[in-house]
Write a protein that binds this DNA or RNA. Structure first.
Length: 196
DNA sequence: GAAGCGATGGTCT
DNA sequence: GACCATCGCTTCA
């Protein structure tokens, strides 16, 4: 049904890869079935030079260690009660990553509904970085996993018509980085977390 | 429909 | 002990 992309898919500069990820399918194969979401919103975190990045100033800790690894690795971390998922970018030693902020459900709809628990509009299942990990059962166990391997991987999707660009969300204390245009989303797609 | 704000837990200093 | 790359409920319109 879905096939993981090849490793060279991730060999691109971070900002280019952030755009390339839009329209691709994030797939998680679970014992209960497959859930799949088309990526519609991403944010780039530009490593040592980006005050909003966890790896600003090449800060290397247990948490950021994986950002220094090869492109295509999974960087998960906890935000309050939520898990957020990133794609590691750039060559080893350059700690950049791309946050997946929203997906559009395209497979395993019933399973996603179950995973989200209480009844709510479909739009709210995956329209945010903490929401989509819950809807797709993505947990910290995937820290360091590779996006080219099952059971959690990226598969080729469909082209994105029109890409909008704007400042990132939720980084209010990052001084000059607050206005960097590092957020990308499919224009008008109802599943993006925030418009403008 | 928008804006305000409290809950909540892991990571780092 | 401070700091959040969040979410969802409450409030006010």
């Amino acid at each position: 049904m879905f096939t993981p992309v090849a490793a060279d898919f991730f060999d691109a500069p971070t900002l280019e890869l952030s755009r390339r990820l839009l329209g691709q399918i994030l797939v998680h194969e679970l014992p209960e079935g497959i859930v799949a979401g088309r990526i519609v919103e991403t944010e780039a975190y530009m490593g040592a030079e980006d005050r909003a990045a966890h790896s600003f100033g090449n800060r290397r800790t247990k948490r950021t260690e994986i950002m220094f690894g090869k492109p295509g690795l999974v960087y998960t971390y906890q935000m309050h009660t939520h898990t957020l998922i990133n794609v590691v970018a750039e060559a080893e030693g350059t700690p950049r990553a791309i946050l997946i902020r929203a997906v559009e459900p395209v497979g395993g709809i019933e399973l996603m509904e179950e995973l989200r628990g209480s009844h709510m509009p479909v739009k709210q299942w995956t329209s945010g970085p903490g929401k989509l990990t819950k809807a797709m059962a993505i947990t910290m166990e995937y820290y360091g996993h590779c996006f080219t391997e099952k059971p959690l991987y990226i598969a080729q999707g469909s082209p994105v018509q029109d890409i909008s660009v704007g400042p990132r969300v939720g980084i209010g204390n990052s001084l000059e980085a607050v206005h960097y245009p590092y957020r990308f989303w499919e224009t008008e797609n109802p599943f993006v977390s925030k418009f403008r």
